[in-house]
Simulated assay, not measured.
Amino acid sequence: MPPHLRPAAPADASFAAPLIQATIGAIGHTLTGERRDEAAAEVLADFFRQPGNRLSFRNTLILDEAGKSLGLAVLYPGAEAQALDEPFRARLHTLGLPDRIDPEAMPGELYLDTLAVAPQARGRGLGSVLLDGCAERAAALGLPLGLLVEEGNPAARLYARHGFLPVGTREVAGHRYTHLTRPAGA
C-alpha cells in the first residue's frame, strides 16, 4: 500500500508530539515554557490531544504507510492564528512566564506550521507527498500556502522545488526565518 495522508486523531499524540518538537525546537520551548525537548514534547502531546490550539490533532495530517506513521503536517488558516495561540498564552501566564508569542502565520494564507518526516523514513520523497497534500488543501480553500523556514535549513530547497517563493523575513523565538508562500493552485 503506498503512503497516504489521513486526518490525525488524539491517539496519534505519542507519534506526533516528539516529531513536532524535534522540528520546531526553540518555538516549542517558547510555546510550552519548557527548556528541555522531552518536557516540551510532553506538553505538546497534551495540546495535540485537544482541539482549539495550533498544534491540535484537528490541524494535523498524518502520513501512513502499511499502518505505520511516517510523517505529519500541521496547518491552519492564518486568520485563526491569534485564537489558536491563546491556550499557549494561558499556559505561559499560569507558569508566570511572559505570554508573548511571536506571530508566524499571516491572515489570507493557509499556514504550514510544521512539516516533518520521521528520521527512519527520510530520503524517500515523503516530504513532497506531505507538501502536495497541503497544497491541495490550500487550493481547495482558495488560499496560498505559507510557511517559515529558518535560514540555512536544507528544506528550503524542497520548498523551492514545490513553487514556494520568499515574501519576507520574520524573527520568531529569537531565530530569523524566511516567509515563503506558494500561490493558490500552483
Rank of each mutant, 00 (worst) to 15 (best):
Gly52Lys: 06
Gly52Cys: 05
Gly52Arg: 03
Gly52Asp: 03
Asn53Leu: 04
Asn53Thr: 10
Asn53Met: 02
Asn53Pro: 00
Arg54Pro: 04
Arg54Thr: 11
Leu55Thr: 06
Ser56Trp: 02
Ser56Arg: 04
Ser56Tyr: 09
Ser56Ile: 09
Ser56Glu: 06
Phe57Arg: 02
Phe57Ile: 00
Arg58Pro: 00
Asn59Ile: 09
Asn59Lys: 01
Asn59Val: 03
Thr60Asp: 06
Leu61Phe: 11
Leu61Lys: 08
Leu61Tyr: 04
Leu61His: 07
Ile62Cys: 05
Ile62Glu: 02
Leu63Gln: 14
Asp64Asn: 10
Glu65Thr: 03
Glu65Asp: 14
Glu65Met: 12
Glu65Cys: 14
Ala66Lys: 14
Gly67Met: 06
Lys68Asn: 13
Lys68Glu: 15
Lys68Ala: 15
Lys68Trp: 02
Ser69His: 12
Ser69Leu: 00
Ser69Gln: 15
Ser69Pro: 08
Ser69Ile: 06
Ser69Asn: 06
Leu70Trp: 13
Leu70His: 13
Leu70Asp: 04
Gly71Gln: 09
Gly71Thr: 05
Gly71Lys: 08
Gly71Arg: 05
Leu72Thr: 05
Leu72Glu: 12
Val74His: 00
Val74Tyr: 01
Leu75His: 02
Leu75Gln: 13
Tyr76Leu: 11
Tyr76Val: 03
Pro77Trp: 01
Gly78Asn: 08
Gly78Met: 08
Gly78Ile: 01
Gly78Arg: 06
Ala79Asp: 12
Glu80Gln: 13
Gln82His: 14
Ala83Ser: 13
Leu84Phe: 05
Leu84Trp: 01
Leu84Gly: 10
Asp85Leu: 12
Asp85Arg: 00
Asp85Lys: 01
Pro87Phe: 02
Pro87Arg: 11
Pro87Thr: 13
Pro87Ser: 04
Phe88Val: 00
Phe88Leu: 07
Phe88Cys: 10
Arg89Pro: 08
Arg89Trp: 11
Ala90Arg: 15
Ala90Lys: 14
Arg91Phe: 09
Leu92Ser: 07
Leu92Phe: 11
His93Met: 04
Thr94Ala: 15
Thr94Lys: 14
Thr94Ile: 00
Thr94Ser: 15
Thr94Met: 08
Thr94Asn: 13
Thr94Val: 08
Leu95Ile: 00
Gly96Leu: 12
Leu97Ile: 10
Leu97Asn: 07
Leu97Glu: 07
Pro98Ile: 07
Asp99Gln: 14
Asp99Ile: 06
Arg100Ile: 02
Ile101Lys: 11
Ile101Asn: 09
Ile101Met: 11
Ile101Val: 15
Asp102Ser: 13
Asp102Tyr: 08
Pro103Asp: 12
Pro103Leu: 01
Pro103Ala: 11
Pro103Cys: 05
Pro103Glu: 12
Glu104Leu: 03
Ala105Phe: 09
Met106Thr: 10
Met106Tyr: 03
Pro107Glu: 15
Gly108Ala: 11
Glu109Asp: 10
Glu109Arg: 01
Glu109Phe: 04
Glu109His: 12
Leu110Phe: 03
Leu110Ser: 04
Leu110Met: 05
Leu110Cys: 04
Tyr111Glu: 07
Tyr111Thr: 05
Tyr111Asp: 09
Leu112His: 02
Leu112Ile: 10
Leu112Ala: 03
Asp113Val: 00
Asp113Thr: 01
